[in-house]
């Protein structure tokens, strides 16, 4: 079904104007049922199983049941995404469990400074081939020119 929502855990993001899963789903699938105040996937056969909703859900109410036409039942992969890493629990159909932890970022979210260390753009440089911060950010003395 792709992503599905556990009604015991989903609190509809406490009736804010939009739920976290609704905010993030790249394919406009996650929806809030206003009567039950629970989220659901409105078009499971167009779910990419990208796990964006699973990762963002504040109550860990969302899971993925693999596509019914080729995934046997009984397995799960569960992410726990922290500020700089993600932990995955992989449970096999036969009960085996594996855990993996991978880094996700080296600097805190919100710390990106655009054009860091670059001088202000000038009108004359607008007509050159160099992109912002080049050649410095290329790490070579000058932008290559084609040898003809």
């Amino acid at each position: 079904m792709p992503s599905f929502v556990n009604p015991e855990k989903c609190d509809g993001c406490k009736a804010k104007d939009k739920t976290a899963c609704q905010y993030v789903c790249p394919n406009d699938l996650m929806t809030l049922n206003k009567e039950t105040n629970k989220a659901y996937n409105q078009e499971p056969d167009l779910c990419w199983e990208c796990f964006s909703c699973v990762k963002i859900c504040p109550t860990q109410a969302i899971d993925v049941r693999g596509y019914s036409d080729f995934v046997p039942l009984g397995a799960s992969i569960t992410p726990l995404r922290g500020t700089d890493s993600i932990m995955w629990t992989v449970q096999f159909r036969d009960g085996r469990i594996k855990r993996f932890k991978f880094p996700t970022r080296t600097k805190p979210e919100g710390s990106v400074v655009p054009y860091v260390g670059m001088s202000e753009a000038s009108e004359s440089e607008l007509r050159t081939q160099e992109l912002s911060g080049e050649p410095k950010w290329l790490g070579i003395p000058e932008l290559p020119r084609m040898k003809k």
């Binding site: 990208c50 995934v71 046997p72 995955w88 096999f92 085996r96 991978f102």
Partner: peptide, 25 residues
């Protein structure tokens, strides 16, 4: 083994789920 699983989990979660569901190690 960790690198192999990360290869899927970082970009194609479905494949990791399929491996687990088919008991593929």
């Amino acid at each position: 083994e960790s690198e192999a699983w990360e290869d899927f989990l970082d970009m194609t979660c479905s494949q990791a789920l399929l491996w687990a569901a088919q008991n593929i190690d």
